[in-house]
Nucleic acid binder design. Structure first.
Lengths: 232, 232
DNA sequence: CGAGGTGTTGAACCGGTTCAACACCCGTGG
DNA sequence: CCACGGGTGTTGAACCGGTTCAACACCTCG
């Protein structure tokens, strides 16, 4: 999965691909709604999502704000390679499998393969670009558009790692989770989802969403995929 | 300035410091409110702020959202080292001097000095952490706290590069700029600033702000400096 | 002097919150 | 088997933080 993600934004030669496939890792499974990492932790290894869904969030006085969704292939704490402490919490949303890769291993492969080092750096830079877009999303757009934007992003990213083809995509989260990501109350999430349904743009039911009018949804969401820096 | 910024988050040996000081660069001066880079641009060099203030922002249907302030020492487009296109606009707020450093030069120094490479990567990771905090700031906090948080951040970062000692700090921006950063209307910026003044926490006048009650301001802002990952 | 950008204030309005009630589903235990 | 409880989804109604519109003050600069 990590390889898939890296390839979605950077080209890698056969030797590098093989090196990544050969990376040693431990595997672990977590139930839904489980804290995996906490703000303040010091890490000696990185996580890569294999299946399921993780979120990064921070608590602020009243309320928790999700800052990122992590789909398979993502490395939610790749930044700990160079940042001593974690500044956010990472937890599962649904039951998820993750791989642990030791920092020492990652640093070694990055040293031996400059193009892998560049690709890893690039992954963190794309994450950064996504955060910027989230600032815009939350700072400027009304609730319905915010949700629409989130769905557009997830769909695009899932497609990029081959986890969604048509207009349907698994997103096993609750309306509560959506509210924490969009910075709006659960009640309003509910009403905004109904509005999206009413407009014939999207339905979200039982952890799966279907886009019925992609152009219309992207229009409403003010979504342009360029900030994801996919190389397709 | 770049060296100062790097040293504020990462230790560097004498050899590396000397290498950074010896970096060749061109210099340029821009008036206030001038677009320096536009979303979609392809860069062959990076900017480092020497004096003044720059902002990164994105336009979204209606309204512009600032995603970052760049004080002296910052490199607003360091990500272009690995991302082909720029996804945001960068412009001056006030008259500013910037240095241009060629990508090729940066890549060379990074190749020759792994610790500089790590420090540059780390800078982009800290930027990322700041974006996360901004998502929380805009998504969760009421207007007064948002502004308070912005002031706390600027003050902390300015101190880190030696541009603020006491409780006073130059921040040559308008209330309009503050509104675009906090995601609130100008009118409400005005009222929120008055509220901060009324509470005896902070005054902002003529491009300079003074913190009168730092503990109180940080409390209201829900500000903890850990996300800036300063090594002090 | 006039024009344009910024700061300031008032008043009406509205998007979104909050509180509260209820429906529904599912797992648990008597 | 059903009763119960907890988590989630849904809806209504009152409320409020923040927006919008509008007017005016102030300053700077041509």
């Amino acid at each position: 999965m990590l390889l898939k993600r890296l390839l979605s934004i950077a080209p890698l030669a056969q030797a590098e691909r093989a090196a990544i496939k050969g990376l040693p890792f431990r595997q672990a499974v977590f139930d839904g709604q489980t804290e995996i990492l906490r703000a303040g932790d010091r890490a000696t290894r990185c996580i890569v999502v294999l299946t399921g869904l993780l979120v990064t969030s921070k608590v602020s006085g009243k309320g928790r704000q999700t800052t990122a969704f992590h789909i398979p292939g993502d490395a939610p704490d790749l930044q700990t390679l160079h940042l001593e402490t974690l500044d956010s919490d990472v937890r599962t949303v649904t039951r998820s499998e993750v791989a642990y890769i030791e920092h020492s291993v990652l640093k070694a492969i990055a040293r031996d393969h400059p193009s892998i080092s560049a690709a890893l750096w690039k992954v963190t830079l794309v994450d950064s670009a996504v955060f910027r877009e989230w600032v815009v999303n939350i700072g400027q757009r009304p609730a319905v558009s915010r949700l629409a934007h989130i769905f557009c992003e997830i769909m695009t990213r899932m497609r990029a790692v081959g986890l969604a083809d048509g207009a349907t995509c698994a997103l096993p989260i609750t309306q509560i989770d959506l509210g924490e990501a969009a910075g709006i109350s659960v009640v309003h999430v509910n009403r905004s989802l109904r509005e999206l349904r009413r407009r014939g743009l999207l339905t979200f039911l039982g952890g799966v969403f279907t886009i019925h009018d992609e152009a219309g949804l992207m229009e409403l969401a003010d979504f342009r995929a360029d900030y994801l820096h996919l190389n397709s």
